[in-house]
Nucleic acid binder design. Structure first.
Lengths: 420, 420
DNA sequence: CCCATTATTTCGAGGGTCGAAAAAAATAGT
DNA sequence: ACTATTTTTTTCGACCCTCGAAATAATGGG
């Protein structure tokens, strides 16, 4: 519980305005007034400040008869509204995604246009501690070098990684795709690029992207479950990203499905991931020993082959997918018992076989006898995990950028009022 | 994201002051200044308003040499601080606890002194819908009738019930101790007593009490697991009560331990409660069929008999407690995977045998290989569940009362500034 | 070219917090 | 007894912020 001051009000309302502009870019002052509920006077004051700071620009007049501006019928009468838009030139932000053996980066301007984009394969498992940070820095430098808009200041960097970062977003506590623990990431990059860096979990970024893409479908509470080299989860609860207490991750994949069951990569037995992770499915489908970790890296083509075989009638393969579904359903049942039911999106290579798993997921989810029913669980699937991760990381970076922008006190103030 | 106004600042700071007074009752303005970080001027303004409203009173002078007021040595020099205290007369709040076959109530004044207290046995399972509400109302009326301080206005009622209430706190969605679903509670009581009513979960109230009693031990994130006729959980995460999304409850007891395992009261199989709930332990210890629900009500004496037998070497009994521990540990492992480890208090009649269960809880919790270690899990136990529930409900009622008090606009405002 | 209409800006009013100065209320010392 | 010193509270003016009302700006329609 912290005390408030008068200017906290301004900060808060400024943020409301900024996110309203972001969601409807461009938007007129009048629309802002109705959307936010602030008075016209306040909208003028706040947008005036933002224009002066260069975060917003006035869009060129589009003529009053413009259909877009005239919601209902008439070719409007009075003074036309002038649209305000995010100023692309205000800043750039970057997202760096570290996945198994691949690092990719995207840079967008302040209004969200992609201005650079790059991807590179690396041997993430064998890189040394410093090499990893170096590698992330290198690719960002290269990407920026290719862009003409790169001289705009970089104001925020989000690093999304498959694994667990600390709650502060400075380091990777553990990740299946690198061989180090407690790997400090943020400091090095912050110094190099002179911008705030936040290290976070890829599944969480996916949930951010889904929320951006389909807010209606996913609502205030939902989960994105990433079925890839491991199983991750991004949780949104009551409109807020929900990480762990100490870390950024909610380790859905490492909830226990069968006590003393199949060996999981985490070293314990019976985790959901040991049955529903790509290696778990492959192990089961190829008759591997459940007490031994497969060494092979399973990519999406292997998984889709397996799915194909299952559909052709391969008993072992289809059993593997069913078991995976059962494990996932079991986990969801527990999750729903704990937090109440919510929509779930399955994302990533594993989602390619969602149709094979769904019946068992639903079966194992079962009905709920107390509280809300599970029978109509909303389950969705999509495969484009990298795309979503990137998008989520960019959206998050922009939101963080908005936050930092407003916390920095008035950078310039010659000539306060000077319009004509 | 909502917009702020200037007076939101006052409201927020007023609340800061009020909770500071509550936690240190009585407290001087100077102490308030240092504790909250507000300026002396603001403290004067806010406390002035609260004094005028009758929420606070100035304590009588205690003399300046008073040791309590002079933190370090000296018999202080200057103007003495004057202590402000919550005005007991400002209001009363009540807590009504509905447990298996018993309903109890406590009323405290605004400063937290108990002014009435009553308990009554009822046959909760057979009461009709209206009878239940009537019964809660009756006992509160009787308790108030006995008290001399009852004419003070009742400003808040918290109803704590073993079971699931909706997120708004108006009704009981489901409870093992009554035979109805979606039982509307709040409306009836609100009309009868003309005070806001909040229906909540008993385990959540226990967590509120623990937080009040031992804030150091439990910190910002912890769980209270109530081992009674069923198994409930109250979760505090990052300093906030965490209920479900739609309901008030996090149903720890109905997470699945063994797929298709023992029959649970909820109608499904293999829930943690089916092994670690009182009836589950009793069923296992007496060799009952795990697929059949025991009809007997297990009270604490039965449980302590079983524990005694286990300690005497009764194999079946000690196995029952071990299985219960395994089930609880399994659930905690999943919870910790999801949310990261935190301290856990086991409360209620089941905690009487905590020593018999703890080894298996820890064994089944195991070590954690990713993220934080589980090996040093902080587990505590205490048996006085009813006492804690009551205390938590009262604390919650007082906090809610503070909230409503401040949302009511200035009741009087003749003569704004009028000191001399 | 003037009017009706809609969008924005300007201008107090009213409410908040803060720091500095003033007032209050004790104690210490002579 | 009385003054100086010390510490707590209150008062006062400066500065922020939002809001409603009035003023100003910018169009389309006659």
């Amino acid at each position: 519980m912290t005390i408030s001051r008068s200017d906290d009000v301004r900060r808060s309302n400024q943020r409301v305005i900024l996110t309203a502009v972001r969601s409807r870019n461009p938007i007129s002052r009048t629309e802002l007034r109705t959307v936010t509920g602030l008075s016209a006077a306040t909208v003028t004051a706040i947008t005036g400040e933002l224009l002066e700071n260069g975060l917003l620009v006035e869009a060129e007049q589009k003529g009053n008869g413009d259909a877009a501006n005239a919601p209902i019928g008439v070719s409007r009468r009075g003074r036309p509204q002038v649209s305000l838009a995010l100023n692309p030139e205000a800043a750039n932000v970057a997202a760096i995604i570290l996945t198994l053996n691949r690092v990719s980066v995207a840079v967008v301007d302040y209004s969200g246009n992609v201005i650079a984009d790059m991807s590179r394969s690396v041997d993430s498992q064998t890189l040394g501690r410093e090499e990893i940070v170096q590698c992330l820095a290198d690719i960002l430098v290269s990407a920026l070098a290719k862009s003409t808009a790169a001289e705009r200041p970089l104001r925020q960097i989000t690093v999304a990684v498959q694994g667990v970062s600390d709650a502060e977003g400075t380091k990777i506590q553990w990740s299946p795709i690198i061989s180090h623990r407690d790997l400090e990431i943020a400091n090095g990059l912050e110094k190099k690029f002179n911008a705030p860096v936040k290290v976070t979990n890829d599944a969480t970024m996916i949930s951010a992207a889904l929320r951006e893409l389909e807010p209606k479908r996913y609502g205030q509470s939902f989960a994105a479950i990433l079925l890839a080299h491991g199983i991750g989860m991004g949780l949104y609860l009551r409109g807020q990203t929900f990480g762990g207490i100490w870390s950024s991750a909610t380790e859905f994949g490492h909830m226990c499905y069968i006590p003393n069951g199949a060996l999981c990569r985490c070293g314990r037995h019976g985790c959901i991931e040991a049955y529903a992770g790509d290696y778990g499915i492959w192990r089961a489908a190829t008759g591997g020993d459940p007490k031994v970790m497969p060494t092979r890296n399973i990519d999406i083509s292997v998984l889709s082959d397996l799915a194909e075989r299952a559909k052709q009638g391969d008993k072992r393969a289809s059993k593997a997918f069913e078991d995976a579904g059962a494990a996932l359903g079991h986990g969801l049942r527990n999750l729903f018992a704990l937090l109440d039911p919510f929509p779930v999106a399955f994302v990533g290579s594993g989602a390619i076989a969602f149709d094979l798993m769904e019946p068992m997921i639903r079966r194992s989810l079962g009905l709920r006898n107390i509280g809300l029913s599970h029978s109509d669980a909303e389950l969705y699937s999509r495969i484009d995990d990298l795309h979503l991760t990137q998008m989520g990381a960019l959206v998050t970076a922009l939101a963080d950028c908005d936050k930092t922008v407003q916390s920095c006190r008035e950078p310039v103030n010659f000539e306060q009022a000077n319009a004509g």
